[in-house]
Design a binder for these strands. Structure first.
Length: 460
RNA sequence: GUAGGUAUAGCUCAGUUGGUUAGAGCAUCAGAUUGUGGUUCUGAGGGUCGUCGGUUCGAGCCCGAUUACUUACCCCA
């Protein structure tokens, strides 16, 4: 059989033992905070029905959904399409050849889950979920085609206490991971909606948000240029300008908005929601997080309706490492009306890259195995088996190097694997009952009885 | 979808205006050391220079195409 080059699809990665220790460190930290705030874990399937996912992420998002090809001979269906006289476009063909897709995020599958299990769920339902998601994007720095999200969402509670707690969760988890300078940006879609109404273009809310979201990247001029090209007028820009150029403390910004947007009912609602979140937050003590009201924060996903969040680290150059917000009608698409939800997501892979760049992973010389038993022959191997069992019975991570390799090779294995202790058993040891016990770090070794060895390993 | 960059040993990379048999470090294996790793020393294996074509007496190097990877844009975690 001809051999093929070993490779994996671009944007995907293998994770070795060291990486897994680090990744689990991130998951475990975030998970413990989620639990502390009363969130319970669920998982959903890797694939969803394609129609569950389409239409939830905007046009751009839909393009990035990985579709799964149906089994069977789909070419026949293409022929059927042709015979019916319909155009053989990928748009027409797609529903015929694909009805499943890989999940694109965790929020939409969660909404689907809530609808399907609504009779078993006690509301408000607080769930967290840590699973990979897939996007058919072009990979680049900090962007993968397979990556993990760590989501916490609550449905069935419109209290803004949830929003305030999300900020606490971000703060606690990221501080615990060792980040010392990061900003949680907050905004409210209702303010943006209000502005769109104010200038009489409520249907162009998406164009508006996408453009002003880029302010810090392309500057005011760039934003204006983009908006003009989308059909906004110079007058519109005049209305918009004081809002997106807002400066000062969060309190000052809110006070200014009160006057600027006093004619927009929607905007005022959004402003008061943000005030309420800040009021809740006043009772909590944050660790390292900076909270910033940012009117240019928009977020691409178009199901958000209330407060929205985004988290950025100020220590390295990296896209957002988390985001979320409130969505009032995500379950409505699946037939369950009037159920509000809100949630946040941690981008675990980006957080990994940040921690690595800042050298923030705990460098505990994580030893998987504590002691390796080396034997000289078949007899010794047999002699070692009861010892192996009793070490493990004491919960000491122990390996026996199977008979057949030179001692040198066995020692090298212990060294490569960072195993701190080695027991050597040869004919001398079997005769005397005193085994050679070597400390690999110091290089010293003694002849000790089995009980003495166990005792040493237990206390070290 | 748009625009750049890169492709040489398992890995990271040198390779002079285009000139004999393409190099280094790391890794691997063997020996110095037949009961001892990590340090040290000695040696060995490992390459259709991404692929196809062109220019040339001669191409790793120049030109064209192609593929893969990568960075940025769009968008996003």
């Amino acid at each position: 059989m001809a051999s093929i080059k070993a490779s994996i699809p671009k944007g995907t990665r293998d994770f070795g033992p060291v990486e897994m220790i680090r990744r689990n460190h991130i998951y475990d930290t975030i998970k413990s905070v989620f639990k502390k705030f009363g969130y319970q874990e669920i998982q959903t399937p890797t694939m969803e029905n394609l129609d569950t996912l389409t239409g939830k992420y905007g046009d751009e998002g839909d393009k990035l959904i990985f579709k799964i090809l149906n089994s069977g001979d789909y070419m026949l269906k293409a022929d059927g399409l042709k015979q019916k006289g319909e155009e053989l476009s990928s748009k027409n063909l797609l529903p015929l050849i694909s009805e499943k897709a890989l999940r694109y995020d965790l929020t939409v599958p969660f909404a689907r889950y809530v609808v399907m299990h609504q009779n078993e769920i006690a509301f408000p339902f607080k769930r967290f979920q840590i699973q990979p998601v897939w996007r058919a994007d072009r990979p680049q720095k900090g962007r993968y085609r397979e990556f993990y999200q760590c989501d916490a969402d609550v449905v069935g509670s419109n209290s803004l206490l949830n929003e305030a707690e999300f900020i606490c969760i971000y703060d606690e988890a990221l501080s615990k991971l060792g980040l010392t300078d990061f900003t949680i940006k907050i905004n409210n879609r209702k303010i943006l909606t209000g502005i769109a109404e104010l200038i009489g273009k409520p249907s162009q809310i998406v164009d508006l948000t996408v453009a002003i979201d880029k302010l810090d990247k392309i500057g005011l001029e760039g934003v204006e240029k983009e908006l003009l090209s989308k059909g906004f007028t110079a007058d519109d820009l005049q209305t918009l300008k004081p809002v997106i150029l807002l400066a000062g403390t969060n309190e000052e910004k809110l006070a200014q908005l009160d006057t600027i947007l006093k004619t927009s009912e929607n905007s005022l609602k959004g402003i008061s929601e943000i005030r309420e979140v800040f009021d809740y937050l006043a009772s909590f003590k944050l660790n390292k997080a900076k909270i910033e009201l940012d009117l240019t924060l928009a977020r691409g996903l178009n199901y958000y309706t209330g407060c929205i969040f985004e988290v950025k680290t100020n220590e390295v150059t990296m896209g957002s490492i988390g985001g979320g917000g409130r969505y009032d009608d995500l379950t409505g698409m699946f037939g369950l009306q009037n159920l509000t939800g809100a949630g946040i997501s941690f981008g675990a892979d980006r957080i990994y890259d940040v921690l690595e760049e800042l050298n923030l992973f705990p460098h505990t010389t994580q030893e998987s195995t504590k002691v390796l038993i080396c034997v000289f022959g078949k007899e010794e191997e047999k002699y070692a088996l009861p010892l192996l069992a009793s070490l493990r019975a004491q919960h000491i991570h122990t390996e026996l190097y199977p008979f057949g390799a030179k001692i040198k090779k066995q020692m090298q294995y212990a060294n490569d694997k960072n195993i701190p202790y080695v027991i050597v058993i040869g004919s001398d040891e079997m005769q005397s009952g005193k085994l050679t016990f070597k400390n690999m770090q110091s290089g010293t070794q003694d002849k000790l009885s089995i009980d003495e060895i166990i005792e040493k390993l237990m206390i070290s």
